[in-house]
């Protein structure tokens, strides 16, 4: 990571005050950086952008006061100068209230690759209000459905082949058969949650190993407000060392068990890449966390612009044409 550019020591204590509809906010560089991160800018880029434009404030807003709208315009202008993509993201995220709601981001991948860390970062940047792991959905299912009825639910995702009786085993890898069986059950719960969240004005993130792109109902997968991304870790050594580090930092029976099941996890990792390719879902490698978060945010924003924005623009245009016809 390169160090962020340093702020020039300001000689005067110029404080810009922004007058919004209901309140008065003193400008804070941290806050601006935060909202730029939401657009998918890297930290370094956001920090230098915020630094450059706020150095201009004493000259541009010499009265020290600016209206909220005027200020947003000013930011927009400068973002366009960098690249129009930032401006259109800024428009959607900051100016059009609830333009992005509802939005459901699905992040698949095996344990230990850094999935939850990344899902967390995405949640923080997009100000997502719901972050759910598929393991917790499995746990709820376990709580209400008995072992004997659905044995697949009661094993770890990587050893659910144990419950399979011999005659079910075909030429396919039993690890995958068992895992698919469990994922099929958990998917019912995942789809319930997605349908529920699609009716709520929130941004939600669902992450977990049970998100198989070819298993989810096409209707939900093709919903413009559902974005599916797959994470993987090509580097096997790195994957194992991350699992081990997690076991060290958060000792539990589960993390020990995951190390024992490492080979099975790798099988599922390859399987998920294959399925993601089949379903045309982008696969992002997690070896470098910073690159991965940049990639994730970009994929998400590209999909938002592609799937949400033009659809609604077209709709407006269509409405306009029908009105003209009338």
């Amino acid at each position: 990571m390169s160090p962020p550019p340093t702020i020039t020591n300001r000689t005067d204590d110029f404080q810009l005050i922004i007058h919004s509809k209901n309140h008065i906010i003193p400008f804070s560089r941290g806050f601006l950086v935060d909202s730029l991160l939401s657009l998918g800018m890297t930290y370094e880029h956001a920090f230098s952008f915020a630094g450059t434009i706020s150095d201009e404030f004493p000259y541009v807003f010499s009265s020290g006061v600016v209206s909220g709208e005027e200020f947003q315009d000013y930011i927009s202008q400068h973002l366009i100068a960098v690249s129009p993509q930032w401006a259109s993201r800024f428009q959607l995220f900051n100016l059009e209230e609830n333009a992005l709601n509802p939005l459901i981001i699905l992040i698949g991948g095996t344990p230990g690759i850094g999935k939850s860390t990344l899902a967390n970062l995405v949640a923080r940047r997009l100000k997502a209000t719901n972050l759910l792991g598929t393991d917790i959905l499995r746990e709820i299912l376990r709580g209400i459905i008995s072992t004997s009825l659905m044995p697949a639910l009661h094993f770890s995702s990587f050893e659910s082949s144990q419950f399979l009786s011999g005659h079910l085993l075909t030429r396919q890898n039993p690890i995958i058969v068992g895992y698919e069986q469990q994922a099929t059950k958990v998917m019912v719960a995942i789809e319930t949650v997605i349908s529920h969240q699609l009716q709520r004005p929130d941004i939600s993130i669902i992450e977990g190993v049970h998100l198989i792109p070819t298993l989810i109902s096409p209707e939900l997968l093709n919903n413009p407000r559902v974005i599916f991304l797959m994470l993987s870790l090509d580097n096997e050594q790195k994957h194992l060392s991350r699992l081990k580090r997690r076991a060290r930092n958060h000792p539990s029976r589960k993390s020990e068990r995951l190390i024992e099941l490492f080979d099975n996890i790798r099988v599922i990792n390859s399987y998920l890449i294959e399925k993601a390719n089949e379903a045309n879902i982008p696969v992002i490698d997690c070896e470098n966390t910073e690159l991965a978060i940049e990639c994730l945010m970009n994929e998400i924003w590209e999909k938002i612009i592609l799937q949400i924005k033009p659809k609604e623009d077209n709709l407006e245009q269509n409405n306009a044409t029908t009105e003209e016809l009338k």
């Binding site: 899902a119 759910l132 319930t192 949650v193 529920h196």
Partner: peptide, 30 residues
């Protein structure tokens, strides 16, 4: 909801779950 989000940021808590989601799950599964 707002409080939950603020606390999630402060504590860096990865999971926020509403009882409405559990309600919906139970409804669809039973």
């Amino acid at each position: 909801g707002t409080l939950a989000n603020d606390l999630a940021t402060i504590f860096r808590i990865p999971r926020v779950i509403g009882t409405d989601v559990i309600h919906r799950l139970m409804r669809d599964l039973l």
